[in-house]
Amino acid sequence: MNNRVPKSLPAEIRPSLFSGHDWIALAIVCLTFVIPFTSTNPQVLSQTNLILIAATAALGVYIMQRLDLMSFAVPSFMAIGGYTVALLSMKLQLTDVFVLAAAAFLMPALCAIPLGALILRLKGVYFVLVTFVLTEIVQLLLFEAGPITGGSNGLVGMPAVKIFGMELWDNPHVLLTTCGLAFVSFIVTSVFTRWFRSEFAAIETNDVLAESLGLAAWKYKAMAFSVAAGVSGLAGFALVNMLLTAHPSSFAPMSSVNYITYTIVGGKASILGTLIGALLLVSATDYFALSGEMSPGLFGLLIIVVTMVARGGVVGVVSGLLYRLAGQSPPLKNGEQDLGVNGEKGQ
């Protein structure tokens, strides 16, 4: 050690639990509660419903992306959540929205624990393949387990859900239920991913190093898989509640590609990206559907263009532009600012 006066450690700056993007996403989801009370336009109600369900389902992809895992299992857990709600309401006459929401979250979350023990050892393309196969298996089970799932007919004629004894039966009320489920899902996802952001970031970046420092990576992977399944289950609840039917076609394996696309195109770094991705692409699907048979091609083209131009997704690009306009460097992964050598800004 030399004789110069040693420098002391800079004071610790504790980051807030939620980032700016989290707050914006939560505020947007909160604002959707206004729509059921102010609009009777079926198109607006239906479109908002679809966007919120898509965004909620895509949160399952977002959570697994914290661990650098691309999950195709979202439709499986949506199906478990959706069919659980349909069975409880039709067979046991349980229609309380809180009970059904708890069941829609817990059932897939519990199913994810043993599944996770089997597949969370996998990484990269192997994890992708196995989660896709899982979705195919669940689809097959939905068709084959006729006595329970109704087979190819599905479970038709669900009663309306109730809140404090009041039936939520018409279009605005159905949207209100979806808004509530989406809000709970966004809150759960935000708190969960931000509370454990250090652990998730370490596993995403360098899981070998994280374990060598004492982190039980499997525990966090299992928790993430379980919570992602639970949130997907809430999306499944919202979907069957909107359709009043639980049908295998609502949980088609290929729909997992849509949820992944919403997350990537919107920007996988924050829940705001998931919401914006769902908002843009569900709206685009609706818009391009007007062009009949050209719609799939136009939709695909939009995905390619946005993905190629916006590497951080739409939210990443817009944030980058705003930081550039403000003369700042973009934040690091945990929302920290790169202050450069000796704390000088703008490296």
């Binding site: 800079p10 970046t205 374990e211 060598s212 420092l213 945990n334 920290e336």
Partner: peptide, 30 residues
């Protein structure tokens, strides 16, 4: 690995082993 690390036996790596995209402070706090 994590059990052994918690028992007090910790390793370093031949090549650089840090959490990329994070500050020096965050790496150490992790």
């Amino acid at each position: 690995t994590f059990e052994i690390a918690m028992m007090g036996l910790v390793r370093s790596f031949q090549h650089t082993a840090i959490f990329n995209g994070h500050s020096v402070e965050t790496n150490l706090l992790s």
